[in-house]
Design a protein around this nucleic acid. Structure first.
Lengths: 216, 216
DNA sequence: ACAGTTACCAAACAATTGTTCGGAGACTTT
DNA sequence: AAAGTCTCCGAACAATTGTTTGGTAACTGT
């Protein structure tokens, strides 16, 4: 209770005792820093219960009140963080895909799936947050399917390229994309529930086997 | 809200104002009721944040202190609830399997998967709780793989029966079980994230298509 | 140099949480 | 009937939470 003290809170690292510096002209900047701090904090403790306004403020080394300039609510915060994380995943998959030669169509799909798995395994808390909140969108119809759809669309494109290259799928491209993504996701969840986190490679190899099922 | 009041909480149904009845001889009975109440409460709001000691006590219409006779901690409560839910899932799958003729080996596997999907779709909060807490088992080695392993073993048995009946799989029975379970789980998650919860049948049909991939 | 805007914060508010302690009431034993 | 035990509860404790209000410092335009 009184440990906040006011002057010098005896926290572990940067006490931030007097106060943090200010910046000018870019109010939007703090928003990004808040998101980054929230992301880092979510990495530490993987439960979404720890994602509290005050906790984020502590992680970002700012005052709790400062968050309300950029997020009206705690709900808005987690929504913003969810979008942020989805953007990260989307970017990671895209980058992994573009790192593979354009001719290797199935290699590009595999790269995207592997990137997705790695993202999910590296930050389980984020992944849980992303998959936890889907339907409850009170806003009257601006977006309907959530940012998850964009990620899947990435895979649909990849499979469509495979089809265009003459490779036959055992389902439609969209169906194959859903199968692949869903399989990868499920396997990662299983990985996180297994006691021994020893082999992360087994997950990617599983994904490969999975892909061989939808092809051919 | 101030509706808690203090003296007389004006809750909706049974105010439980004076006090609840007592029972005799069976102290273990309340434990079950607590679990049931917690399960029901988790159904209402699907976040695991709402799973608070006081909330469970409110749902069970008992005093918060009464919980500590059966669960030392809040952690112990959620652990107990997790086990309880896994047992429910296990029982549901087993029952669905046994409802199919013993000769129809693939039908039995399908029944188990469908039961798993239905369970997950009917109670998303429970399912999230189950999949959220896997590894952190501080107890020195009584059980290692968690109750999820039992569920998967059920499927492994099913696929093994398929193999014994002469049906060829595209992977080993254990691998096929993991693939099938993981796919079903992932598909359900996707279903929960899709805005329109319209078609629950599409999930089960997806599972069927999925199964046709591991067979043949 | 003055007002105006931007960017941030300290302190307080009401509410809720986990947990503990000392009892009550119902039943059994003696 | 007295003592004992089992089962449960009321009330309090300290801590933490989301959110609001009223500022203060930095920087801008004029």
């Amino acid at each position: 209770m009184t440990e906040s003290g006011g002057k010098n809170g005896c926290v572990s690292k940067k006490v931030s005792a007097p106060r943090t510096r200010n910046r000018w002209g870019e109010g939007e900047r703090l928003r990004g820093e808040i998101l980054v701090a929230a992301s880092r904090l979510l990495s530490g403790l993987d439960g979404e219960d720890g994602l509290t306004i005050r906790g984020v403020a502590r992680a970002a080394d700012i005052a709790p009140a400062s968050i309300y300039q950029h997020f009206t609510d705690r709900a808005a915060l987690v929504a913003g963080l969810t979008d942020y994380e989805f953007a990260r995943l989307h970017a990671a998959m895209k980058a992994a895909r573009d790192r593979v030669d354009v001719g290797d169509v199935v290699g590009r799909v595999r790269a995207m799936l592997h990137a997705s798995c790695r993202f999910a395994m590296d930050n389980p808390g984020h992944y849980r947050l992303m998959t936890a909140n889907g339907p409850p969108q009170a806003a009257p119809g601006v977006r309907q399917a959530g940012p998850l759809a964009d990620v899947i669309e990435l895979l649909v494109d990849g499979f469509a390229c495979c089809e265009a290259a003459g490779i036959t799928l055992r389902s439609s491209a969209r169906r194959a994309a859903v199968i692949a993504f869903v399989g990868a996701h499920g396997r990662v969840v299983l990985f996180q529930n297994s006691a021994k986190h020893a082999d992360a490679d087994s997950v990617t190899s599983f994904v490969d086997e999975f892909l061989s099922l939808v092809f051919a």
